[in-house]
């Protein structure tokens, strides 16, 4: 099957628990054992307190749409998802922000709003790579 998206190459060693978690439909995040704050992307030093004692935990997968864009063309030759598509920056309830796509909603700026509640959905791309997408979460929180 032809791939629709450019997939990570390489997966860096410090990010392995993240990608392994996604394969099991879990959104795993790194957290600092010293200051107890979560962060993303994975790295070996806490960006909050600079300690080097990192653990992993499973995120709720819930958060809010911090900001968004609507792509009306492809910006990368290897990205073959048919436009328009929604580019999303999500702020997870645990604090960190991550990039993703917002799916399950019409790509219309009148229908999408910053701070709307969203939740993660997993989509397998290959045996190795599953990606986390987000969709509107029902109801108020």
């Amino acid at each position: 099957m032809e791939l629709e998206r450019p997939l990570p190459q390489p997966i860096t060693p410090e990010a392995k628990p993240y990608w392994e978690g996604l394969r099991e439909q879990k959104l795993m995040l790194p957290r600092c054992r010293a200051c107890r704050r979560a962060f993303f992307y994975p790295r070996v030093i806490c960006p909050h307190c600079h300690a080097a004692d990192i653990e992993w935990f499973q995120s709720s997968g819930r958060g809010r749409l911090y900001s968004f864009e609507i792509g009306y063309q492809s910006f990368n030759k290897a990205f073959k998802v048919k436009p328009p598509f929604v580019l999303a920056m999500v702020e997870l309830d645990e604090g960190p922000r991550m990039m993703s796509n917002l799916i399950g909603i019409e790509p219309d700026p009148k229908k999408i709003r910053c701070d709307m509640p969203v939740e993660v959905v997993f989509e397998k791309q290959t045996d190795e790579i599953t990606l986390p997408f987000f969709r509107p979460a029902g109801g108020t929180r």
């Binding site: 998206r5 997939l7 990570p8 992307y41 492809s74 990205f79 998802v81 990039m99």
Partner: peptide, 10 residues
């Protein structure tokens, strides 16, 4: 490559 490109950023 790991955190942006798969979603169409570029």
């Amino acid at each position: 490559g790991q955190y942006e490109a798969p979603f169409g950023f570029g």
